[in-house]
Design a binder for these strands. Structure first.
Lengths: 230, 230
DNA sequence: GTGCCAATTTATCTTTTGATAATTTAGCAG
DNA sequence: CTGCTAAATTATCAAAAGATAAATTGGCAC
């Protein structure tokens, strides 16, 4: 079903200025989305449809044959950039009780770095949030379900706390998990949004973060649950 | 020199629709800036000059008598937003060795919340970063000097590590301090940039963060310094 | 080769918004 | 009270950018 975009590009971009190229709707759409990802990555989402069309080598109105509004196109791009970048294996990694939670988290956040520590990714994610596009919430839901909640669940399991069925996860306990995530993600913000230099040995720092977290988290969780029961 | 804006407001906003109000340039300018801060806080910097003028009860072209471009007005707003927020007493608070570092950090971050957990502040800070405005670096330097470095220094002091003069603070050690700050600030990002609900008992969560940090930080710091010496 | 039809383009609209020029008038000096 | 000055308004421009309607044409079916 998926059309090979590189193949189409060959078909299209042959020489400088060429005659109108008539593609099948599937091909054209694939080409638009693919180019849009690249284009918006570089210029941000305020960039114009006209410039996008220019890069595509088509006219601007043609975009509107494939996407009713710019917003819809952007949503499509987001979908591709964010949602698809999440690898289901990560969810399994975190839940795998054959290993210590510390090891699992170190592995996860180190691998996750490859997906997230990326100029385009971080910046457009922040932009989307600031602009109020409803893109972040879907992605953050993935994080919630696959990272934060498992952290709480596994942490309880390792430290003999009541299961989440007996004592549901409170907001405060979720915040505990967010703390871990914050240490990790704020580094990316500092680097890609503020332009500060990134630390050299990132893997080392991530490991250090996780160990820091895992050292204090059990006690913190215990306290939270205790307060919750009172 | 500073004009009391609340006084001018009384002067201005008397009844619903009033005749044109002729103010001195100083007064009018103060009113514009003050209102702009409030206005852009709520609607972000993409909001229009017309709407701002409406809130001010003046016409849109009048803005251009006081600021040659919208950009200039925004810069002025930025300046004001960051000028007064950092309180020098916070620097002293963190360095006060009469109290435990844990207590100091809890106090600091709880107080600091009032300055930073603010729609305008967080969003404009992120926007400035993304847009490449050179606003963040100056502010982050304050954070570095008054928060992060003191955290490292005090942490060493409390845990019998070599002084920073003997063993300078490495990037990795700075990252450790940034971890603390990340837990704190990423919450604000989640709330004000992503629009997620903020946890109810924020003070409690901050205290929890600091305790989490202080539980693991000494060991982490020790490791880092050890690696550094090797 | 011919005709068709949908992919694509051309031309154009509309709204938004930053910015300017010309006109009006508030309110103080005298 | 009168006149002047500059504060403020009205009217308007121009550019940008999303979106639409009508005309054009590439390339497949036959």
């Amino acid at each position: 079903m998926e059309t090979s975009v590189s193949a189409i590009k060959n078909k299209t971009k042959k020489t400088a200025s060429r005659k109108r190229q008539r593609l099948s709707p599937d091909e054209r759409e694939a080409l638009i989305v693919d180019t849009a990802i690249e284009f918006f990555s570089e210029h941000g989402f305020e960039a114009t449809t006209r410039e996008l069309a220019q890069r595509l080598g088509i006219t601007q109105p043609l975009l509107y044959r494939y996407f009713p509004t710019k917003q819809k196109l952007i949503e499509r791009v987001y979908e591709r950039i964010y949602v698809r970048r999440w690898q289901p294996k990560w969810g399994r990694l975190i839940k795998n009780r054959k290993r210590s939670l510390t090891d699992r988290l170190i592995d996860f956040y180190q691998e996750y770095t490859d997906a997230v520590y990326d100029y385009v990714w971080v910046r457009s994610f922040l932009y989307a949030g600031l602009m109020g596009l409803d893109i972040n919430s879907r992605y953050l839901e993935i994080i919630r379900t696959n990272v934060l909640i498992p952290i709480c669940v596994e942490l309880r399991h390792e430290n003999d706390q009541p299961s989440v069925r007996k004592v549901p996860i409170s907001d405060e306990e979720m915040e505990l998990a967010w703390s871990m995530h914050g240490m990790f993600f704020y580094r990316a913000v500092r680097h890609f949004a503020y332009g500060l230099p990134i630390v050299e040995n990132l893997d080392q720092v991530i490991e250090s973060d996780v160990r820091l977290f895992m050292k204090g988290a059990p006690q913190a969780q215990k306290k939270i649950i205790k307060r919750q029961m009172a």
